[in-house]
Design a protein around this nucleic acid. Structure first.
Length: 871
RNA sequence: GCGAGAGUGGCGGAACGGUAGACGCAGCCGACUCAAAAUCGGCCGACGCAAGUCAUGGGGGUUCGAAUCCCCCCUCUCGCACCA
């Protein structure tokens, strides 16, 4: 709890130091710096301006600020900008629900959040700030799109969207709840629309291969991206239909299938089509039951998670396909709700014995299960499949010319045979799909093309950019306001001059966030980027953000950077040299007896441990610790925390609590502990400054044992904290800082030679070690310890004296049979014979090995001795 | 459903394959105080008088030695392409 008159008054100090940094321009960077300092570009994922900053932001920007301030202290020229991911659905929802214009809502939110971020004392170059909803930004994005179009990286084609038939609107996946539109409650349908795609699949091999070079990315993010890109080797083959099926575009005689398991072709028992497959549509055209089934599948929406978790269902079309290797054999053709049109060819062959999904489907519909891969050690005559498919290695059985081959060899043999018969060929396939960027919404960057009846799709000429969103739009009817606007879309064709229509779709907001990091290098440039600036600053040296962006945002940004490279905007292929992904901020949740969620500020913890509602005194149920969310009301307002405890306290608690890649739990007790530490450090600085005033100027000739020990602790702490900051283990850095502060306090209890000097040295080091984490407090400590010596924000990171940091003795653990029996103190690097002798001489050890035969003596220098006794 | 991670005292966590529990929070005891708060000092995994034994989600394995490496399982988290 904040005392009435604390020793360190953060309420006065924090604004004062923020003003001082601002006045001295401490955090400004140049687009193309002239001095020779090495560059370091620190970037946190920029926020969506939702209205207020939340603890996730505080955590993200604290982590980034520690890196930025630390690197500055290490002599780097640091670029640390901030902006706003300002387009998106919530602004439009606010417009529909409250009648406020998206632009006003967004800019008001930005103003509020900027003020909150500034109170955190972040070392940001605010002169580079921009919002993606400004024409000065998105106009350049339109230029990039036109360049990509010119480079062949853009395509227009049809794809499926979620359609709300009542609201007459395309729905985002998150707006589809249990198959119904969130606002209308109407059953959602899938609809085909012509849309713009960026051809990210063109870069699939490059995006996959380059993952190996991203050594400063978390392994798990690289793994997730590799799996997402999903390279697979298999075969594409055609199954001839027994009878061609008439269809609108002419009869369909065969179905193409992509498979990674051509070795299991002899185990095939059915063929399954996606509900959107052309053959499924052809069957549905003449078969009302099929049409009903397809329609039902289409009501599931487009989300893959929903499709794959739904019960596996199918419809037997009555059609049959011929087996490619077995002329006499045919298999039924089903339409199945779990087959995805977007992957492969939209049709699969089912081998239930060796694929779990196929097996579940076969069991549900009584289809054959034919094992063709025999696991090692099994007998072919009795081996059967129960409820689990077998996808391990083995030898082929009941597979004609493949019999006896191992599965791998069988794949190659099956592909060779398909090619010989002209039925198919080996193929490398990618799970990654092209990036659909069209959105039927107002609050986004307009796609800069014009549709002309005569000329087709015509790009907006560059001199006509930016295509600016109209401001006079109405949200009182469903659908896209750009579509309804009386004049905006009506323009002459740039090519022939005839009446034409603007594209009314806007870009996916992922496009906005796919190049902002490049724009930050030269935010005022007349082109998307100034070449000299991006060449200097890119790539981002350290990117920091939530793990939830591990795939989409980071993959799109990687693709965009390559596309910008291909179109000559910059030289690098990869945007982020180092990546750190932080965990979420969580909090206990509270519920009243009647089920209402309560805010942490609504509750009270009684001395007896009971938790009650502040207003009524009624008992409160303490729920799980969960990610902070408005719906559960388990949120803590950063602004309130900063007002009550100060920015440094909030920053310190966030860093001290746990490793930053893990979820952290926000607790009141934790914040209070952090607050007490800020006060304690400041009091310690005052006490040391007072006691050692006369010691400040001359180094003592001699140091007592205690003074020397403190000096050693100080210099070891420099090494430990440096290494902890470098490895993002800030919680360990905090622990080491606590230890040094404890050591300074303890040293104060003796009065040996040089103690005061050593304490002063320690406090000077502490000031600079805490500066990246608690920058305001560090400045204040310095005014006490070394008045008039300038801003800590401009000072160099402390250097450890290697002589003082070196260990004088090491403690070696002595084990007998792997169990600890004693520890011994030895000089580092002591000869093995001495160590073993000392170890064996320990009474506890001697007792354990007396009368036993020692068959092995393990000695790991400076760490451990282990005596192994004969059994 | 598929893909990727995580799990250590009452709590957050520390620990190059080498003394499990650093540091902090909470708690307990003491000092200061008329008293409380703040502050300062001490104790603090479980069982045991002790020697010691047990203990890193559960079960197996590798090793002189496993929180750490391997296999199986459980629970939780993130992602699944129109939330950002």
């Amino acid at each position: 709890m904040a005392e009435d008159r604390p020793a360190y008054d953060f309420r006065r100090a924090e604004p004062r130091w923020q003003a001082a940094w601002e006045a001295e321009g401490c955090f400004r960077a140049d687009d193309t710096p002239a001095d020779g300092r090495p560059k370091y570009y620190v970037l946190e994922m920029f926020p969506y301006p939702s209205g207020k900053i939340h603890m996730g932001h505080v955590r993200n920007y604290t982590l980034g600020d520690v890196v930025a301030r630390y690197k500055r202290a290490r002599g780097f020229d640091v670029l640390h900008p901030m902006g706003w991911d300002a387009f998106g659905l919530p602004a439009e929802n606010a417009a529909r629900e409250r009648g406020v214009h998206p632009a006003k809502w967004t800019y008001d939110n930005i103003a509020a959040m900027r003020a909150e971020l500034k109170r955190m004392g972040l070392s940001i170059d605010w002169e580079r700030e921009f919002a993606t909803c400004q024409p000065e930004y998105y106009g350049h994005q339109q230029k990039l799109f036109l360049d990509f179009l010119g480079a062949g990286l853009v395509e227009r084609r049809e794809s499926w969207v979620n359609w709300d038939p009542v609201d007459g609107t395309v729905l985002a996946n998150e707006q589809v709840i249990d198959g119904r539109g969130w606002r209308s409650g109407a059953l959602v349908e899938k609809r085909k629309l012509a849309q713009w795609f960026l051809r990210i699949t063109e870069y699939a091999p490059a995006l996959l291969d380059a993952l190996d070079g991203l050594e400063r990315w978390p392994e798990r993010v690289r793994t997730m991206q590799a799996k997402w890109i999903g390279r697979s080797e298999g075969a594409r083959l055609a199954f001839a239909l027994e009878m061609p099926e008439p269809a609108a575009d002419g009869p369909i005689a065969a179905v193409e299938v992509y498979t990674t398991r051509p070795d299991t072709l002899f185990g095939m028992s059915f063929l399954a089509l996606a509900p959107e497959h052309p053959l499924a549509a052809a069957v549905a055209a003449r078969d009302t039951a099929a049409a009903a089934f397809v329609a039902e599948c289409q009501r599931m929406g487009t989300s893959e998670a929903v499709i794959e978790t739904a019960e596996k269902r199918g419809y037997d079309t009555g059609l049959r396909v011929r087996h490619p290797f077995d002329a006499g054999r045919t298999c039924p053709v089903w339409i199945a709700n779990f087959v995805l049109m977007e992957y492969g060819t939209g049709a699969i062959f089912g081998c239930p014995a060796h694929d779990q999904r196929d097996l579940d489907f076969a069991r549900a519909y009584g289809l054959d299960v034919l094992p063709v891969v025999l696991p090692p050690g099994e007998d072919a005559d009795v081996f059967t499949i129960g409820s689990e498919a077998y996808d391990g290695p083995g030898a082929m059985i009941r597979s004609g010319f493949l019999d006896g081959l191992a599965a791998d060899a069988a794949k190659a043999a099956a592909i060779a045979e398909l090619e010989r018969r002209g039925l198919g060929q080996g193929e490398i396939n990618w799970r990654l799909r092209d990036w659909g960027v069209s959105r039927q919404r107002y609050w986004g960057c307009p796609i800069p093309v014009i549709h002309c009846d005569a000329c087709g799709v015509v790009p907006v000429p560059e001199q006509a950019l930016p295509v600016v969103l109209p401001e006079d739009v109405r949200f009182d009817q469903p659908g896209n306001p750009l579509e309804h606007h009386p004049t905006w879309k009506h323009v002459p064709c740039p090519r022939c001059g005839a009446a034409a229509r603007r594209e009314t779709d806007t870009f996916d907001t992922f496009v906005d966030s796919s190049w902002y990091f490049a724009r930050f290098c030269s935010p005022a440039a007349a082109a998307p980027v100034a070449r000299a600036a991006v060449d200097h600053w890119m790539p981002v040296d350290q990117y920091i953000g939530g793990i939830e962006h591990a795939i989409l945002h980071l993959l799109y940004a990687r693709f965009f950077t390559r596309a910008m490279q291909a179109s000559g905007h910059l030289a690098v292929a990869e945007p982020f040299d180092g990546l750190f992904t932080q965990g979420m901020v969580t909090h206990e949740s509270y519920r009243a007896a009647d089920g209402r969620w309560l805010y942490p500020t609504d509750i009270e913890v009684r001395p007896d441990g009971r938790v009650t509602e502040r207003s009524s005194g009624a008992e409160v149920v303490v729920g799980r610790v969960e990610a902070m969310s408005k719906s559960r009301r388990n949120t803590v307002d950063p602004d309130a925390i900063i007002s009550r405890y100060g920015a440094d306290t909030a920053r310190w608690f966030i860093l001290a609590d746990n490793p930053p890649e893990r979820d952290m739990q926000w607790t009141e007790a934790g914040v209070q502990g952090a607050y007490r530490f800020t006060q304690r450090l400041y009091r310690l600085a005052e006490a040391v400054a007072e006691q050692s005033a006369e010691a400040a100027n001359h180094v003592p000739g001699a140091f007592s044992a205690g003074a020397l020990a403190l000096r050693q602790k100080t210099h070891r702490t420099i090494l430990a904290v440096t290494s902890a900051v470098e490895t993002f283990t800030f919680n360990v850095a905090v622990a080491r800082i606590h230890e040094l502060a404890n050591a300074v306090s303890e040293a104060g209890r003796e009065s040996g030679a040089g103690v005061a000097w050593a304490q002063r040295e320690a406090m000077g080091v502490l000031t600079r070690l805490v500066a990246p984490m608690m920058p305001h407090l560090a400045e204040q400590m310095q005014t006490v310890l070394a008045p008039g010596s300038g801003l800590v924000a401009r000072q160099h990171w402390p250097l450890a004296d290697p002589e003082l940091a070196r260990a004088v003795t090491v403690r070696i653990a002595v084990q007998v049979m792997g169990k600890l029996r004693a520890t011994i103190e030895m000089p580092p690097g002591a000869p093995e014979a001495d160590v073993l002798a000392a170890a064996a001489a320990e009474p506890n050890v001697a007792r354990q090995i007396a009368g036993q035969r020692v068959i092995k003596r393990v000695h790991v220098p400076d760490r451990i001795v282990n005596f192994v006794i004969a059994p």
